[in-house]
Structures are given as C-alpha cells and as structure tokens.
C-alpha cells in the first residue's frame, strides 16, 4: 500500500503538469479543430526560454518567470496563428494541410534550437532542486510540488477566464457552435487568434513547470507529444476540462505502472492506453462513440 502511494503521489503531481500541457492542445482543437502537432515544441521553446532567463544572467527562478513565459508565448502563439495557421483552417476537411503545416513548424523550431544551442542537454537547477519533505513515509519533491501548484493556479485562472470574461465566454461559445457564436456578434477570426495564443501560452507554462526536473534538449517535445495527445483524447477531443482530467490520469498511470514494470517502459503504458482509448472510446471517457454506418 505504501509502495503504491509512493508512486501515486508523484503521479498526481506530474499529472497536474500534463494537464496544463494538454489543456492548451485541447483548447486549440476545441475552438478551431486543428490538431496542433507543434504544441510540444512550444513547450520545448518555453523550456529554453526559462533556461535562458535562469542561466542567462537574470537568474530568475523558473516558477517566478512563468508569467513572463506566458506573456511571451501568448504573443508568439498569436503570431504563429496569424502567419501560418489561419491559412489552413476554415477550409473544410483540410486536415492534410493542418497536419503537415504543424509538423513542419515543430520541426523548424527543433532544428533552429539545435543550430543555436546544440543538442547538449541543459538543466535548470535552483538551489532547492533536490529538496523535499516526507509526509509520513512518502517523499514529496519540492520542485514537483511547486510545479503542481503552478498548474493548479493556472488552471484556476483559465477557468475564470473562460467563465467570467467576455472573451472567454466568446471562446467557449465559438468552440461549441461557431455559427451561433457568429449570430451573437462574436468575431471568429479574433477568438481563433486569442484561443491559439492562450493555448500556446498554457502549454508553454507547462514547460516552465517541467524545467526544474526535466533536462532540456531540442527534441524533448517528442517525449511529451503522445502524453499530451493521450490526455486530450482520454478527456474527449476538444474539451478543456476533459484534457485536465485526462492529464492527471495519464500522470497517475505512468507513475503507478512502475509498481509492476521498470521505469524505462512506463511510457509504453501511456502509449498503449492512448491506443486503447482510440479504439474503444474514441470520443473520450465521457463522450459517445460514433461509427460509420
């Protein structure tokens, strides 16, 4: 039992970060039906930005730098949307162009970073990086706890934004029924732009949360891409709340699997679960199954 808890608690903590990473992907899909394969590379870029802020003289703690990262990626995400993504949405059933555009963008980010910073792993180690506390017999790492708390705070702010602000409500309306939202006077082009910015920034802050215990390379995104997709699909494509629940569940499964199998293959569980969901409940744990007749 204790052994189980020793894996469960870190699973919940990392699951909170996955939830944050996935919520950005879920928001973007929900509002404009774009599966953004470059999402994990936004995370990677944010990790490099956190590292640059921390190691590059300013010395600002990545958790404290999170608002800066959010702002930078909100603007950056909107720029990417305006320059590239908006040209491949709206055309009906245009998944091909969306898939290759976002894959291509992700690849460009990876290789530009590779050229600038090489593939040498970078580490952000604040003074408390190895600290932690025992709660009973369970060790809780300080940085992972902070990462989880950061995720909770951002999740709460996102909830307030989507439910309490005019723009947030417009985004929810557009993701439920863009035509009806148009009749309300919602500018769909604008909600798409803002939703892409917010979605990018959410995942970026997820990167800030990870950076204190995950070493950074140009290709670190590849390790998280399926985790993010698994969380989003588990919670139901397009549902931001679902992506949160999905993220936490993925964190738990990944961590608890180590009770039975070695840590090296923990992601096999995640990938396998992802497939299983796609096969049996493609619209998520809470969604309906739609099949061709």
């Amino acid at each position: 039992m204790i052994e189980f808890l020793q894996f469960l608690v870190p699973g919940i903590l990392i699951g909170g970060v996955y939830a944050l990473l996935a919520s950005g992907l879920g928001l973007i899909f929900g509002v404009m039906r774009v599966v953004n394969f470059a999402q994990a590379d936004f995370m990677m870029l944010a990790m490099y930005l956190s590292w640059a802020i921390f190691a590059g003289g300013v010395g600002l703690d990545p958790f404290l730098a999170a608002p800066l990262v959010f702002a930078a990626f909100f603007v950056g995400g909107m720029a990417v949307h305006w320059l590239f993504v908006r040209h491949v949405i709206g055309r009906r059933e245009n998944h091909d162009a969306q898939v290759i555009l976002t894959i291509g963008l992700g690849l460009i980010f990876q290789n530009l970073i590779l050229i600038r910073y090489s593939s040498e792993p970078r580490v952000v180690a604040p003074s408390y990086a190895n600290d932690g506390d025992f709660v009973g017999e369970i060790f809780i790492s300080r940085v992972r706890l902070y990462a989880f708390l950061l995720s909770v705070v951002v999740a709460a702010l996102l909830f307030l934004f989507l439910n309490r602000t005019r723009t947030g409500r417009a985004i929810r309306a557009a993701s439920e029924n863009w035509e009806a939202a148009t009749y309300m006077g919602v500018d769909i082009g604008r909600t798409n732009l803002i939703a892409f910015g917010v979605g990018t920034a959410l995942t970026a802050v997820g990167g800030s949360a990870l950076v204190t215990f995950q070493s950074i390379t140009p290709f670190v995104g590849l390790r998280f891409v399926v985790v993010m997709f698994a969380a989003v699909v588990l919670g139901g494509l397009g549902s931001v709340g679902g992506a949160f629940v999905g993220g936490v569940l993925i964190g738990i499964i990944q961590s608890v699997s180590q009770v039975w199998t070695s840590a090296a293959v923990k992601n096999v569980w995640v990938f396998g679960l992802f497939l299983l969901i796609l096969y049996v409940r493609p619209n998520g744990l809470f969604g309906k199954v739609q099949r061709a007749i």
């Binding site: 590239f84 040209h87 491949v88 162009a97 969306q98 290759i100 555009l101 894959i103 291509g104 963008l105 690849l107 460009i108 290789n111």
Partner: peptide, 11 residues
C-alpha cells in the same frame, strides 16, 4: 529542408 518543404506545401 524537409520542414520548410512541408510548411510551404501546406500553405
């Protein structure tokens, strides 16, 4: 090269 090709083709 591959990445640029993908982006350009998509657009």
């Amino acid at each position: 090269v591959y990445a640029a090709a993908l982006v350009l083709v998509a657009l």
